[in-house]
Nucleic acid binder design. Structure first.
Lengths: 232, 232, 232, 232
DNA sequence: GATGAATGAGGTTTCATTCAT
DNA sequence: TATGAATGAAACCTCATTCAT
């Protein structure tokens, strides 16, 4: 496995670029926690995968728990970076929401560990991240954007009147999240592989359809605009 | 110690009604697994909570893993029973979907452990339930009902043409599930208590709104029916 | 030792007389803590010396710390039992104090671990025994006896007027304790083996001499009684 | 990392005056060893408290054990310095012994760490100081003084005939030492705070009383001198 | 059907110490 | 003289599981 990275390490020889060991531990931990959950993860496996001395985990992170917090902050930072790249402000409201919805799905597909780590943290009542000031504000920019686009869409007459930005955010996220987070048990009861590419594409289209139908369709039954063609 | 108190498996000398210990272990296990996840759960806590001898767990269930499978079967049986009580067949399509959507939300609210156990099992890639024939078919009746109601709704002209029953099922479930399963991490980034009654009511109405908007609103922009008043 | 209780121990067969393992752990722990102090003691060595499974230490005592508390209670119980055997009430005041003084010295000589464990506990500010109600009252009977004998001695005119029983108790104990507890460092600076029998005898006589001189000799210079011959 | 900041042992570039780091380590070690005992002390805490690099401990002292020896030599040097300041030679025998007795008590009160370090070393059978030639002779001057004063006291007819200087030294030291070293466990069984100022004063007077009673009071019952007033 | 003492592998964490610079 | 990253052995403790009765 790691034969190619083993460079004839002589006993007592140290010295990796500073911060390198820390990064390796964090990366290995993210994988391990995602794969096994918090309690199921083994610090032992983490340091072995990272190829560092068992002690460094404690040297850098203090405990398994604080390592987990570091992993979660890493995850949230990734998610924010992903959203930051979307440049949603520049788009028309409907395009912005569509892009966000698709990007959310794509992010979860690309980084399976994000979902698993969030699920793990929820099983633990978010007790590890509750005190992180940084995490508490990671989503503020995105929520602000959604709010603005909803407002603009309403002003332009393309969105229904009474949209709650927080609910919309939860819906957009949840429609992707649940499909992927629960694809294993869903796969059992549906007797179907939800991870298959075609199936995933179908789901992606469905989600956009649901979100935009909701936004266009007023509770009073009024229809806002002729729907555009659904791009792949 | 005392010879006269040494009992040698005489019939009728059980200190508890037969099966009672088994039930108590299962109930305690369900709680413990829901609270701590599979790896985090302690057999010790389970038997202590059940008030039985540690050995009985192995006597009845063989291992922690097989006990977990039993818990999952118990959970799925509960869910099915819940759905079975809804009598969706007798309702008009739209009413049936609305009732199912609301009932799904209510079930997850009432039995928090269902969500946590499903999440736990998904972190483990459904490896525990994969081989359970019983679980694989638990949802068949519900999926059949959804399919029929979608078909009827289309025939009646109240639902859009191209509805996929499986996607609809996942959407209905996911819109409730995600809100509740991830309410702890969402609570942190939204700085809001998603468990508050008013907040939950709002979410419940939102979900019904989303689902019905989607069903009524054709991708071609045609509107099916004037929407009814949203009942509380 | 335990040959008569050994009943053909087959592999995997457990079953020592109940409480036996617990007793063995306690005895081994007392030795180890006395020899190495609290932090220096190794739970590993304890269970190896006791010949029991490592886990039983935690099964019976919960932690290294609680095991140490159990050892201390054992020690204090021993000391009290030793004092209880002296039947000091029946003696004349002077004889009672002499016997107590000599017995204190003899006890510390015989049970070296008592001194070492008490010293260890004092290094730790008595934090382990502070909450033990049992230990707090172990010395009450002895202190009551000293008080009564001091009172009787004064009434009989053989002891000085102003004796404080607590100070006397501390003095009697300390004169023996310090010689033995610090015999190693004293041995270095005195270049002498304080553990040699003749040397110990000399100390024992000296201590009795000091204590009785104090009791007989009033601060006002009055002499109470002609001193008796010092018995060996 | 940066090549230009790499310094190669140029004279005068030390960040602290030479020997300063060594002194800081020694002071921190003395505190830590006194507080936790030898095994309980952490080299880590020592270097952190000293504010120096972990490596310096080994650079200057070689090992935790040799550092402990250095601390003990430091302690003994302090004690000797304290005794050297007393100018006992110039006093009358009785005054010299009284002053020594009181000063011993006061020293132990003032430097609590002395007692704790000596106790620690005794638990370890004085193995660390056994080979220190310097420590072996630290008390020689004081013992010589006691011997001389005892001799003079006898010659003047104020002390009893048969006083052993070593025993007297041990008694004087022990009466103070035990009260203070064991004040925590004594406090538990006496349910009293031996560290309270009034209580300590009482003990101090008691000790002087015991020592002088012993010296004045011959085993033959003869009284040497009218006792003076006990000074506070 | 039930008990409780016992097991042993392995988990997380600590700690004195050393290496390369 | 000084630094800071790294080491590895071993410490305390946990946990699922089984044995004899």
């Amino acid at each position: 496995m790691d034969a190619e990275t083993t460079k004839r390490r002589r006993p007592g020889q140290a010295t990796r670029p500073p911060g390198e060991s820390q990064r390796r531990i964090l990366a290995a931990a993210r994988q391990e926690f995602a794969a096994k959950g918090f309690a199921g993860a083994r610090t032992d496996s983490i340091v072995r995968a990272a190829g560092v001395n068992p002690n460094l985990l404690y040297h850098y992170f203090g405990s398994k728990e604080r390592l987990f917090v570091a992993v979660m902050e890493d995850v949230y930072a990734d998610v924010r970076a992903h959203h930051g790249d979307l440049e949603l402000e520049a788009l028309a409201p409907e395009d912005a929401i569509r892009r966000l919805t698709e990007a959310t799905f794509d992010l979860f597909v690309a980084s399976d560990d994000v979902i698993r780590l969030l699920s793990t943290e929820n099983i633990h009542h978010a007790e590890h991240i509750r005190d992180s000031e940084r995490i508490a504000h990671f989503y503020d920019p995105l929520l602000a954007i959604i709010e603005r686009q909803v407002e603009r869409g309403r002003a332009l007459g393309v969105f229904r009147a009474e949209v709650d930005a927080q609910e919309l955010f939860i819906t957009i996220t949840g429609l992707s999240y649940f499909y992927l987070s629960n694809r294993h048990t869903l796969g059992v009861i549906l007797r179907s592989d939800l991870n298959a590419r075609a199936r995933r594409e179908r789901r992606r289209r469905h989600i956009v359809d649901v979100v935009l139908s909701y936004l266009r369709h007023g509770a009073d039954g009024t229809q806002r605009l002729p729907p555009p063609q659904n791009p792949a």
